[in-house]
Every structure is written in C-alpha cells, then in structure tokens.
Design a protein around this nucleic acid. Structure first.
Lengths: 163, 163
DNA sequence: TTCCATTTGCAAATGGATTGCAGCACCGGG
DNA sequence: CCCGGTGCTGCAATCCATTTGCAAATGGAA
C-alpha cells in the first residue's frame, strides 16, 4: 500500500480469462449473452494493450457489428467492472480487460510518436490519494495517471514517425 | 526530487504575473500583441483554476472574440509554455497560466459531481518517471495525473448535484 | 506611412461519442 | 419446444469539442 509495487512485473499482460469465464460474468450480472458482446470480449481478451472502440471494431472480423453497439457495450462492460477505461489524452477512450477481482489498476507509458504502449505496473499515487482524501474530505477517490515520451525507435528514426 | 514536496502548500494559486509581464513574454517570442490574446491572458491571470475554452470565451466581456481564435491562441500559448493544458477526462481541455520559469507542474483533485477543483501541489510520479525512462529507453518523458472523488458538500447533498 | 506575415472572424468540416427508434434476439416460464 | 417481454442491435440523425479554409483586418518593422 505504501510500496512502489512490483519492479519488474509482467512485461506483458497475458490472456488469463477464457471467453467462457467472461461470458459467465455476464450471466452472473443478468446480462444477455449476445454475439456482439462475446465478439468484443474476445477481441479484448487477445490484446495486451488498451484498444479504442474503432480498433475493436476493426479487429472484429466477420463478427462485425455496429460501432454504436460497441460504444454502448463498452459502457455496460465498464459499469460491470469487466473493462477499465483509459484516457491517453488524444480524445479517444481506450479499454482493457480487467483481470479478475483483485486486479490492481496500472498505468501506461505511451510513445508520443508511434503510440507504442508499455504497461506500467508501478503505482505510487494511491498513497497520495489517501492523504488527499483525508485532507479535503473527499470520498470515492480515484486517480488517473499516464506517462508519455519518445520511444527508442522513434528517437532513432527522427521525429518522422507520426506527423 | 524524491520527496512528497510541500505538504500544505498554497491552497490557492494566486495571480502572480501582471498583464504587462505576460505581454512581454509574447513580445520576447516574436508574437504579436493582439487584443484577443491579451484578453485571454487577462482572464487566465485572474482565475486560480483551469478553464475550458468555452469558459474563457464566456469570461471575456466586451473583449469578446471568436471561439476559434481562442482555440488557436491556446495552442500558441501552450507551445510557448505560457499555459499548461490539463485533461480531466470529460472531453474538454482546460488551461491554466504557468507561473514563471520554474513553476513545478501540479495536479488536481476534481469533484465528480460539482466539478469543484482543488489544486494539488504534491507530485510523486516524477521519480517513477525517471525510473521508467531509464528502464525503457524513453526520452522526453512526462506524465499527467489527476485525482477524482466526491467532495464533502456533494456527499452531504446526495448525488443530486450534477446529473 | 507602407508592406507583409501573422491573426482574426466566420462558416463549414471533422471526428468521437450519444441517442431515438423500430425491429430482432436472448432466455425464463409455460 | 414454443412464447412473450425485456434487453439489444443496426441505422441514421445529432451533439459537441475542436479544427480548418479563406478573405479581410491588423501588428509592427522598414
């Protein structure tokens, strides 16, 4: 709670939940098991990094479904705690599957040029968060933290990666 | 650099720069001193918290100018380092005047209901930032951190403040 | 005062996200 | 196994922050 957490924890977040498990979670919450929903969960399941709704939509092959449906489902899944929303400050939300109950939230290190994403297991702010809550009488406190920079590759290639 | 910084630092960020000083900064960077620009700076100068472009626009009284002009100027001022952009995750950017050279960036604690903003002087992540940069070979690293919660007043009033 | 690059106002265009609505599908009860 | 109600979906329209094209207006150096 006060420590820098795992130093060199999982370099990649691996798929840990089967589609069946995820489906069960839907069922447990009285949500209908629909094709679009399963397709979305399956896409998220096989990606280690946050995806935008558009990326999810593109990743759906033949299971294609309406973008609006994806937007709606992401809200649903988020409120159910199955996915977590991240904001990289570029105006589009990104979603990642939550790995079970005690999955501690994490942060990201994003390349400003090629948008490569590195998962960051460390998390300091929680401590600060407690202090702030106490000092200002706030409740239900949470925080959002992301890191930005230029990755080794983009630095080498010059800033010509993404205009 | 490794410490939690000031514990009970300035509860409010005060106006520290005169309009003249700000204007001089524009001049120093070969920017034209125009009415809209001065008006915007003056509005920011007299507000202790981040403002959205729309709020700035509304705050301009007779000095009214086009919203697009404000958007363009905020980009300019940001690239000049005169203002800093903040993202509270609600889809609209907010800007705050940077208090001179060594003004250490800071963060905010925002009420999810009434959107009250509390300036947070503490800043931990810089340390983590260094570690991340080193570990992954990233350069020009920066971070963005904001806290969210429910303020004492909104908790009392029930979640009826903002729909 | 003159000239030109920078700015501005206005209107149209973008792009992510949301919503109204009618039709379809999941799934518990019969 | 079939039926009906509630929840979902597709589609199109809409919202809203932000951006952009363009011609006219304006700083400010010569």
């Amino acid at each position: 709670m006060n420590k820098p957490c795992a130093q060199h924890a999982h370099p990649h977040r691996l798929v840990q939940q089967s589609l069946t498990e995820l489906t069960d979670k839907l069922r447990a919450r009285d949500r209908k098991i629909t094709a679009p929903r399963q397709a979305v969960l399956d896409v998220l399941r096989r990606h280690a990094h946050p995806l935008t709704n558009r990326e999810i939509h593109a990743a759906l092959g033949k299971a294609d479904c309406d973008l609006a449906t994806i937007y709606r489902n992401m809200h649903t899944l988020e409120s159910m705690g199955l996915v977590k929303r991240y904001d990289f400050g570029d105006g589009t939300a990104r979603f990642e599957l939550v790995q079970g109950e005690g999955d501690p939230h994490h942060h990201h290190l994003v390349c400003r040029h090629c948008h490569t994403i590195i998962e960051v297991e460390d998390c300091f702010p929680t401590e600060l968060e407690q202090r702030l809550a106490a000092r200002h009488g706030f409740t239900e406190v949470s925080h959002q933290l992301e890191f930005f920079g230029v990755c080794p590759r983009c630095r080498r290639d010059g800033a010509a990666s993404v205009p």
